[in-house]
Design a protein around this nucleic acid. Sequence first.
DNA 1: TTTGTAAATAATCAACAAAGTATTCAGTCT
DNA 2: AGACTGAATACTTTGTTGATTATTTACAAA
Lengths: 211, 211
Amino acid sequence: MSKDTVRDKIVEAAKKRFSHFGYGKTTMAEIATDCGMSPGNLYRFFPGKLDIAEAIASEDYEAHLAQARKIALAPGKDARDRLRDLLFAELRRTYHKLEKDPRVLEMATQIGHERPQFINWMLANERTILVELMEEAEKRGEMIPPGDKEEIAEMIQSATMKFRYPQLWSKLSLAKLERELDGVLNLMFQGLCPHAGAAREETRKASHAVA
Amino acid sequence: MSKDTVRDKIVEAAKKRFSHFGYGKTTMAEIATDCGMSPGNLYRFFPGKLDIAEAIASEDYEAHLAQARKIALAPGKDARDRLRDLLFAELRRTYHKLEKDPRVLEMATQIGHERPQFINWMLANERTILVELMEEAEKRGEMIPPGDKEEIAEMIQSATMKFRYPQLWSKLSLAKLERELDGVLNLMFQGLCPHAGAAREETRKASHAVA
DNA sequence: TTTGTAAATAATCAACAAAGTATTCAGTCT
DNA sequence: AGACTGAATACTTTGTTGATTATTTACAAA
């Protein structure tokens, strides 16, 4: 995985320290000695400490993105189910990641606070996937909503904001969050649009069981 | 307005101080002398300082609730428009209230942080209004979504969470927030639910694929 | 008994010094 | 020149102290 370059060695060392002792409790000096170099040299590869954390986070995030894209384009499911699977996967992933250890949460809040641009980058990536999902649906001849796809993706993100960084504002259990996300999706699919009717209910349950 | 009881005198004095100097910068002693009494006596009427702030907030909030209810039940508009008006009114109200002076924001964050129950009370009140809106729609013979109304109200709140305490997490302009709220409402009303006829056909395809 | 006081307590805050740490840079080594 | 060092700098955190201030309580007045 690691390309054996100096930069990667730094990232690896930092990853170990951060996950062991937390972001705040590891010093640049420690990372440096772990790499057999002086603190100053780290700055030839990263502008600052937080950028090392960002590199770790984005490395992890890229892997997640690939998986998310797979879910969004999965064959054998209609757009509705793919969207549902995608959002559920993201909810579960972040929930478990932040639940497991407070060290990850510490890094996440740190980055979220000082690097809003990083968050925006992640959101933009996810919007891209949503757009791809819709384009794929179009290609397959499925029904898709009218209008600018990029904008629709933005609105989907707005409506599901609550489920994207769960424990950063709500302290709800995963079960409760899943129930709510399910409800919000139903709202978007059929809830306030009475004509579509009760026929959907059955398929929703079926696809959910599979996911 | 004030019922001229001691309790109300305290609230009035505190309101002046808080809005003048902020919550943090006014002391219980000051409020007490403004009322011509000793600090200790305040505690015969309120459990603590924050409870005075809560009293002020809830007094203000009750007025807002009445207005919100009027919007939710306004004659001459269908349920869709009433819901839109309601959510826009809440967005604008809180936005302007928090934008205007940092002292209100200070109190809001303070209460929100230490008294989650108060926030829950407000959310519950708003859900009640949403339910009333739907019941009114039913009474008028308008189309309303199927299912438990209380639950639907909860889901509407989930989907519009982002717009309820705007500047507590997003730092978006009011214009942007309004644009997004509009988009989310469109999503819920029609966006991901193409025509009824098409929806039926899509259902057929989906169940085929899943099986 | 009810309404209040004011002194006592405890919790929080502000100021400031002391450490500790991120970041920089002048200079060394290859 | 390019890679790196380690001491110097500047920023941030931590710890401490004294003051402020919220809250309690023992007592007094009506």
